[in-house]
Amino acid sequence: MNIAQDTPTAADSAPVTYEDLPKVSLHDHLDGGLRPETLIEIAAEIGHELPATDADELAVWFHESADSGSLVRYLETFDHTIAVMQRAEDLERVAREFVEDLAEDGVVYGEIRWAPEQHLTQGLSLDEAVDAVQRGIEAGVEAAALAGRTIRAGQILCAMRHTERGTEIAELALRHRGQGVVGFDIAGPEDGFPPSRFAEAFELLAREHFPVTVHAGEAAGLDSIEDALFTGRALRLGHGVRIAEDIEVSFEGEDEDGAPRAIADLGPLASWVRDRQIPLEVCPSSNLQTGALATLADSAAEAHEPESHPIDMLVQLGFAVTVSPDNRLMGDITLSDEFELLADVFDYEAEDFLELTLTAARAAFLPLEDRDALEDHIRSEYARLGLVDL
């Protein structure tokens, strides 16, 4: 997976790979990024039956189940991952390995989202669950450092949309503010469970000046995005790709290469999101898997073709686009793989990946000084790799 076959690194003259690029992952689910081997080992300990007990076969099962085109079926795969994440030691292990895997993929800053309310069946309290994950994150950061890699990671706590614990999870996030928790989200079934159900939680978080991102514009459309922005006070949109439904594209004349010239007319919501540079946490492969693009495509088949994804249009129109893997186990994908997909489909090059990564760094739930330092680190790494000039 060479990003530039003829571009050597300064250190060893080896070709630069996608894994070499410093990355920022903003939308990455803890219960969607387990190692198959870990799943099998913990499941055997607790007596949970899995669809397969061979690591390769299990990985294939997750990918095929998730690649159904249905968000509902996609979410069903989490029954197995959540089942093995109920004990403190298991949460800690999964979080540690999660961070190690991010670091190995070149991620230098990651926000790890998960729903503590789903991990209480073995007697853990919400706070104990958060503490266990934080211990794992810190152990993963240390392990990465020993392996010569640098990474920083924070937790985003999710309230499940179909339950009634939003305010409780918001209060949990505030209790752990400054102790590893950097943001709040609502996750789970999007269609039929709007952000307005959690108005009290969002009001509390707004009063406390706590960062919020909201899953919106994936399984549900423009109403979901609008509710996330104006009820949820979302600083970022989880996925958000269906903002493209508020963009009308027509063709007029030809460009200098003789191709039809596209004219984009942004509706009021799309203009609001773009003009205020509200970051979109786009997960290209996941969007293709879950059928999130069905309303944007001319056919069901086209909705699963990478070329149908609106990410390049959104980038070209000046939206604040970031790229994340969503669920690495279900998608059989890494952030490096997502970059390679963009290169293959849209001819993205190093400069494009740098801009996507800098946009993600600017959108991180970090203090301004830390975001600036993260941007500087990313630029310096690209320069060290010989991909850009400082």
Rank of each mutant, 00 (worst) to 15 (best):
A303Y: 11
S224Q: 09
E200H: 00
A206I: 00
S286A: 05
T322D: 02
E252P: 03
T231M: 08
L342S: 01
E138T: 10
G267W: 11
S324H: 06
F184D: 03
I243L: 07
C158A: 15
A259M: 09
E248A: 14
D12R: 03
T17F: 00
T322E: 08
R135V: 11
L368R: 14
S286F: 03
P367D: 02
P310F: 00
A55W: 04
E142P: 04
A297I: 07
I46W: 06
E375D: 08
M160E: 09
G331S: 15
E128H: 05
A95P: 08
D389T: 15
A11I: 15
P15K: 13
A303V: 09
R113M: 11
Q5V: 15
H162V: 08
L58H: 00
A10G: 14
L124Q: 08
G232A: 13
D191E: 14
A270Q: 03
T334P: 09
P116Q: 11
E64T: 14
A360S: 07
V315N: 15
V321L: 05
H27K: 12
A52S: 06
E92I: 04
F184C: 13
T167L: 08
R197V: 03
P15M: 13
A364I: 04
H48D: 09
P260R: 12
V94T: 14
R87Q: 14
G267C: 07
